[in-house]
Amino acid sequence: MKKQLLVLSMLLFTVISFAQEQKKLPSVSLNTVDGEQVNTGNLGIKGPIIITFWASWCPTCKREMGTLNELYADWQEETGVTIVAVSVDDEKTKNNVPTLVNANGWEFLVLMDSNSDFKRAMGVSNTPHTFLINESGEIVYTRNNYSPGDEDLLYEALLKLKK
C-alpha cells in the first residue's frame, strides 16, 4: 500500500510539475502515418488543438479515439478544433497503427512517436493522455486516462476557449 501511494504521489507530482512548468507545446519532429515529417511546435493549425496520446494495444485508448471520432465533425464545426492523435507504439507494434486508423475511419491527424520523444517532452507517463492547446500554443487542459463521459469535460474546456 505504501509503495502504491508513493508511486501515485510521484505521478501526481510529475503531472503537476509539468502543468506548472510546461505551458507551451514542445517542438519535436514526428512522422504522420503516411511518412510525412511534421514538427509539433509548428503544426500550422489555426484554432485549438486536442492532442491525445494513445497506443494500438490499449483498449481504453481505442475507446477514447472512437468517441473523439464520433464527436469530431460537430466539435470542429462549432469550435474550429483540430484533433491530433499521437501513437506511442514502438517498433514492435507501430505497423498496426495505419491499419487501425484506416479500419476505424479516424479523420484526425495521426502522428507516430515510436521513440517516445514527444511523449517524454509532454511529460506523459501512460496512455491515454489528452491535452487541449489554445490558439497561442498553450496547454490549457490535461487529462490522464479515459472513462466514458470524460469527453464532456474536454468539450466544456474547449467551449471556454471560445469566450
Rank of each mutant, 00 (worst) to 15 (best):
I45N: 09
V86N: 12
K23I: 10
R120A: 11
S17E: 11
E77K: 15
E70D: 15
V86S: 02
Y141K: 02
I50S: 12
P48W: 07
S114K: 12
L153R: 12
G105M: 06
L68E: 10
Q22V: 08
D90L: 03
L71A: 15
M1G: 15
L11H: 13
L111Q: 01
Q22F: 02
S116R: 10
A55M: 07
L71R: 13
I50Q: 05
S116C: 01
V110T: 15
A55F: 01
I139M: 13
F18M: 07
T40K: 03
I45D: 07
G149I: 05
V33N: 10
D34R: 00
T127W: 04
L6Y: 06
K162T: 11
N69C: 01
K3Q: 15
G105R: 07
I16D: 05
L161G: 00
V33E: 09
K94F: 02
R63N: 15
K92F: 03
Y72F: 12
T52S: 07
P48D: 09
Q76G: 09
K160C: 01
E64M: 04
T40R: 05
T67D: 14
D113S: 05
L154K: 08
N144T: 15
Q4A: 14
N115K: 10
Y146Q: 10
P98R: 05
G66H: 04
G44I: 11
T142N: 08
N126A: 14
Q4T: 06
K62C: 12
L12S: 08
K94W: 01
V38G: 00
N96Q: 14
P59K: 06
L8K: 11
G35C: 14
F118D: 03
V81T: 07
L159F: 05
R120F: 10
A121V: 03
M112E: 04
S147F: 02
V84D: 08
